[in-house]
Design a protein around this nucleic acid. Structure first.
Length: 270
DNA sequence: ATGTGACCCTGGATGC
DNA sequence: TGCATCCAGGGTCACA
């Protein structure tokens, strides 16, 4: 589920609910997710105030007094506030208790991660090599043009490469390329500067729209109901194979690129 | 350095 | 109903 917008909405909900509060207790039920969960993590966290909830790419960085809790949601992870005393279900791997607020980590596929970083999080190997944040001023057509020099891979897998730009996942890569009218199979270095000047705003627009839509359900996320809403139900191409293109009506194509599904319109994307 | 594929894990959908 | 197969929004790693 989680692409950058959902991670950002999650970060925002955590900031609103528990930033500045003390974590009384953590319950870790899974010894291993994508990586081993540090054995002493619950003890490490107990009693520390949460200074700030940050995000880098799809990584959540919860800055506690004296260290950083790094959380990645993987493909199936989520963080929800649940009422105290709510019984954990099968895939509820962690609870972070802030007084009456219980933040619960759920991840059926266990591709997520919980790590404790005592040092500078920006120097951690998982963070250090990440590319630029797409919603910053530095992410420009010129930046992307330089980053794609000499890259022969398709433009779609290229913009999903977290070493170039973070947070553009499989859904929004297809959506952004549709918005910009670019064929996802075009080699990355072969996309003209003029078209990159369409693509960069398209990526920003797509991500911002998804965050806003998620933001409209923020109260749900912050409340007890846990529903994060359906801010990704309005895809133009993703998961719409064979259905008519919203612009021209021709059937949406589905192909595989690098073991991932890509959706696009043959007529609108060249 | 870049590109490709395997792999991590569980569950849901589909087909025989 | 049961079983096999494939697919899924993430990312890392080994290897050509």
């Amino acid at each position: 589920m989680p692409e950058l917008p959902e991670v950002e909405v999650t970060r925002c909900g955590i900031a609103l609910q528990v930033e500045g509060r003390r974590l009384n207790r953590a319950v870790l039920r899974a010894p291993t997710l994508r990586y081993p969960v540090p054995p002493g993590l619950a003890r490490t966290l107990a009693g520390r105030p949460l200074v700030e909830a940050k995000r880098r790419g799809k990584y959540l960085l919860l800055d506690f007094d004296g260290g950083h809790l790094l959380i990645h949601l993987g493909m199936s992870g989520s963080l929800r506030f649940v009422a105290p005393g709510t019984l954990p279900q099968k895939h509820d791997h962690a609870d972070f208790v802030f007084g009456e607020q219980v933040l619960r980590f759920t991840d059926p596929r266990r591709f997520g991660a919980l790590l404790w970083l005592a040092g500078d999080p920006l120097e951690h190997p998982l963070i250090a090599r990440l590319g630029i944040e797409p919603l910053t001023r530095g992410f420009t057509p010129g930046y992307l043009h330089r980053a794609l020099q000499g890259r022969s891979v398709g433009i779609k897998p290229a913009i999903m490469d977290g070493g170039l730009v973070v947070g553009v996942g499989n859904i929004y890569a297809s959506e952004s390329l549709f918005d910009a009218g670019i064929d996802p199979r075009t080699s990355a270095s072969g996309v003209s500067a003029a078209r990159l000047s369409l693509l960069v705003p398209a990526i920003k627009k797509t991500l911002r729209a998804a965050i806003r839509a998620g933001g409209s359900t923020l109260r749900d996320f912050c409340g007890t109901d846990g529903g994060m809403g359906d801010f990704q139900t309005r895809h133009q191409v993703y998961d719409r194979a064979g259905e008519p293109c919203v612009k021209c009506g021709s059937p949406i194509q589905a192909i595989r690129q690098g073991q991932r599904s890509t959706y696009f319109c043959l007529r609108c994307q060249r």
